[in-house]
């Protein structure tokens, strides 16, 4: 068991200011885009406040590079975010691999995240060391807590793909869903499930290390490495603008200002990406969901 201790300190002024900014942005995102500003959307794997804290500097940076206003938009949940995708309200968007695969008809990937120095990540199944589970087959009849929903690439699709590859069927284990991959790992730590589906970088997240004693967990299975979260723009975006945006993102590592932006976004860099880079993802989606664009 790990106990996280609270420090006696008030909320920072920055946190309060960010919260106010977030409230203002969610009230009128579309109007801003219509006025010629580019809308940057980020999927809600983090809460809105954290998302804004991390990505507002990036939006400002891109805006500066483009000479055009770029507005960061967050969504209160995945449903609202996905409606924005479907309605193509975002000019620039970061989401997970499954989201891209599903929206590839209207959005074109131009870059990918580099996190913790890696451009890829893998789906992982975690178990407690004291659970005596050492093979995927032992998950039969057990409860698996997946991070995110059924559209979570690393939290659900990749782990289920590995289980399917191991011969398990969906009906042979109980699926539960935590709000995000980190919580699925925490749930297993707290013995609320037998295994957790998450990304291979989750266990390194400071939030997770602060919440639990990760030493009591172990990796049951790891999928192949998959390119990290994609950055996409609308396919209707002019090529020149698309390239400018790609260049701005990819060159972040090359300037001090860019590095600060990356640090703020908890990224080590952004690399170029193209559609075919996500074919391995499509293979897994197809195996787990039976289709690439479920209705």
């Amino acid at each position: 068991m790990t106990v996280q201790f609270v420090r006696d300190r008030p909320r920072t002024i920055n946190e309060v200011a960010a919260l106010l900014w977030f409230v203002a942005m969610t009230a009128m995102p579309v109007a801003r885009a219509a006025e010629g500003a580019l809308v940057m959307g980020v999927f809600p794997r983090l809460n809105a406040s954290e998302t804004t804290t991390r990505y507002a500097p990036l939006a400002d940076y891109v805006s500066e590079q483009l000479g055009r206003k770029v507005s960061l938009v967050t969504s209160k949940d995945f449903e609202a975010f996905w409606r924005g995708i479907e309605e193509q309200r975002y000019d620039i968007v970061q989401y997970n691999q499954y989201h891209y695969i599903r929206s590839a008809k209207t959005y074109q990937v131009i870059a990918h995240n580099k996190e913790f120095g890696k451009s890829t990540l893998a789906g992982v199944l975690y178990v407690r060391k004291d659970s005596n589970i050492t093979s995927l087959g032992q998950l039969r009849g057990r409860t698996v807590l997946f991070g995110g929903g059924e559209d979570a690439m690393m939290g659900y699709i990749a782990p289920v793909y590995m289980m399917l590859q191991a011969g398990l069927k969906k009906e042979e284990f109980k699926s539960r869903f935590a709000v995000n991959p980190l919580n699925s790992v925490i749930g297993v730590y707290h013995k609320q499930a037998d295994a957790a589906g998450s990304g291979d970088g989750a266990i390194e997240q400071p939030a997770l290390k602060n919440a639990i004693n990760t030493d009591e967990l172990t990796v049951l299975a790891v999928s192949e490495q998959l390119l990290h979260l994609p950055w996409a723009v609308k396919r209707t975006m002019p090529a020149r603008l698309r390239e400018s945006i790609q260049s701005a993102l990819v060159n972040l590592e090359n300037s001090e200002a860019g590095k600060k932006v990356l640090k703020s976004a908890v990224l080590t860099g952004i690399g170029k990406a193209e559609d075919k880079d996500y074919d391995p993802h499509r293979k897994m989606v197809r195996a787990v969901t039976g289709t690439l664009s479920p209705q």
């Binding site: 996280q4 609270v6 869903f177 935590a178 709000v179 925490i186 749930g187």
Partner: peptide, 17 residues
Amino acid sequence: LAFDYLQLNDYTREVSS
């Protein structure tokens, strides 16, 4: 219900503060 332990942690942290 959402297995949002981080949120719970926020709650308990807030209470404990």
